[in-house]
Computed example of a mutant assay.
Amino acid sequence: MINVRQFEWTDFDAVTAVWEATGRDVVTRPELEAKLTRDPELFLVAASDDEVAGVVLGTYDGRRGWILRLAVHPGHRRKGIASQLVKELEDRFERIGCPRVNLLVMPDNEAGLRFWRALGYLPYPDVLCSKPLRSGV
């Protein structure tokens, strides 16, 4: 049985392993420490028998919620874990008064786009602009 709960620091190595197994960049401890000072209740793990099977990182800026870094370990896919993580995160967004949730999907990620559309997320024609700051280099 999968239990979706808030991230704890004892999960860090397991979460890192999930990100690595799925080819995602790993969020470093200092980055997570900064994130967790704002909204720790929006960083969730899906665990089964003390094994982290999936993770999602949510954030809320006071205007919009963002879903970041949804990942399920390849050995645990096709079991509804990603949907469970998203549902719990959406519930938490609603409880804090978040009116809209955004996320980014690479345009060539057809499976990802199908997944998000099935959950009611619609693509927008926005253009992502990004600028690294010296502190983030």
Rank of each mutant, 00 (worst) to 15 (best):
I2C: 01
N3S: 01
V4Q: 13
R5V: 01
Q6R: 15
E8C: 12
D11S: 02
D11Y: 00
D11M: 00
A17Y: 06
A17E: 09
V18S: 05
E20S: 11
T22C: 13
R24W: 11
R24Y: 14
R24E: 14
D25G: 11
D25W: 11
V26I: 07
V26F: 05
V27H: 09
V27D: 02
V27C: 09
T28D: 09
P30S: 02
E31Y: 02
E31R: 07
L32P: 04
L32W: 15
L32Q: 05
A34L: 13
A34P: 00
A34V: 09
K35G: 02
T37H: 06
T37Y: 02
P40I: 02
F43W: 07
L44Q: 09
L44I: 00
D49C: 09
D49S: 13
D50L: 04
D50S: 15
D50K: 10
E51D: 12
V52T: 13
A53D: 04
G54Y: 00
V55K: 03
V55Q: 07
V55H: 08
Y60F: 15
Y60R: 09
Y60K: 12
Y60N: 08
Y60V: 05
G62S: 09
R63D: 10
R64I: 11
G65K: 03
G65S: 08
G65N: 06
I67W: 10
L68Q: 12
R69V: 00
L70H: 04
V72A: 12
V72N: 12
H73Q: 00
H73D: 07
P74I: 13
H76N: 13
G80I: 02
I81E: 01
S83G: 15
S83W: 06
Q84N: 11
L89M: 11
D91A: 11
F93H: 13
R95V: 10
I96Y: 11
C98M: 08
P99W: 15
P99G: 13
R100P: 04
L103W: 03
L103R: 08
L104M: 13
M106G: 10
M106C: 05
D108W: 14
N109H: 13
N109K: 06
A111S: 04
G112A: 14
L113M: 15
R114F: 00
R114C: 06
F115Q: 02
F115Y: 05
W116I: 02
W116Q: 09
L119P: 08
G120R: 03
Y121W: 10
L122K: 11
Y124N: 12
P125C: 09
D126S: 08
L128S: 12
C129Q: 14
C129L: 15
C129F: 14
K131D: 02
K131Q: 08
P132S: 15
S135N: 09
V137E: 00
V137F: 09
